[in-house]
């Protein structure tokens, strides 16, 4: 498929919706890119499950302190005003509704808001980490993802086929083609790339798309 957003561009688009001063948790991997694209003049406070609020950029090589890591076990630094806390406080921030936004990756998202992002099935060693906690409690749970899998199957579906991470938890999906809200168990298209028609977008989506009012063009800079 041509004419789709790169991961960096998807992350950029998601970052535009994070308000100044928001408390934000970014999932391990691709979602971590969102931190790079905060709009000028806004500063979010980033939370990591292992017990830091307001961590900053990665240190340069050789400058790492391995007692100062994020949930992905990558070395980080601290911004002014950072704090440390133990795991029960950290997940109280998560489940207690204190985070404004959590942005996660996905294998599948259903029109019901169900998310599958922790397991691709029963093979190998199962590992869940904080994924099932993070989908509960943040005021907004958003997903960033390619619109389809590597082999072209829809990732936005009527019902997830993979093991669920959480039920009815996702409220917005930023994909490589569109920005889609989940409202009353339907996918509502808010923005799409100008180069793709609504019919083409529907053809790449495993559940019905709903239009409410006008669909804005999804416009993202080259990054």
């Amino acid at each position: 498929m041509t004419g789709k957003l790169t991961n960096a561009q998807i992350a950029w688009r998601a970052a535009q919706d994070i308000e100044d001063g928001a408390y934000v948790n970014l999932g391990i991997g691709f979602p971590e890119m969102v931190a790079r694209y905060q709009p000028p003049g806004r500063q979010a406070i980033f939370h990591t499950e292992n017990g830091i609020l307001n961590f900053g950029r990665s240190p340069s090589e050789g400058e790492e302190d391995w007692d100062l890591i994020n949930a992905g076990k990558k070395a980080v630094t601290l911004n002014r005003g950072a704090s440390f806390f133990h795991h029960a406080d950290s997940f109280a921030m998560v489940r207690g509704g204190h985070l404004d936004v959590a942005i996660l990756g996905a294998y599948e998202v259903a029109e019901t808001g169900d998310l599958a992002n922790w397991s691709t099935g029963p093979k190998g060693v199962p590992a869940v980490g904080g994924a099932m906690d993070l989908v509960h409690g943040a005021k907004r749970v958003a997903v960033i993802t390619d619109h389809v899998t590597k082999d072209g199957r829809p990732k936005l579906v009527r019902a997830c086929s993979l093991p669920l991470t959480g039920v009815g938890c996702v409220t917005r999906v930023y994909t490589s083609l569109a920005v889609i809200d989940i409202v009353a168990q339907r996918f509502v298209v808010r923005e799409k790339l100008a180069a793709i028609s609504l019919d083409e977008l529907q053809g790449l989506t495993g559940a019905g798309l709903v239009v409410e009012g006008t669909i804005a063009d999804l416009v993202v800079p080259e990054l």
């Binding site: 499950e49 133990h86 489940r95 099932m132 906690d133």
Partner: peptide, 29 residues
């Protein structure tokens, strides 16, 4: 799940035999 692990340990230390959490509702776990 990581947060449930933390809270189960906290509960063990705090003399709380059980608690309810939204985590894992509707999942295999």
């Amino acid at each position: 799940p990581q947060g449930t692990l933390a809270e189960r340990i906290r509960a063990g230390g705090a003399g709380i035999p059980a608690f309810y959490t939204p985590t894992t509702y509707g999942t295999d776990l």
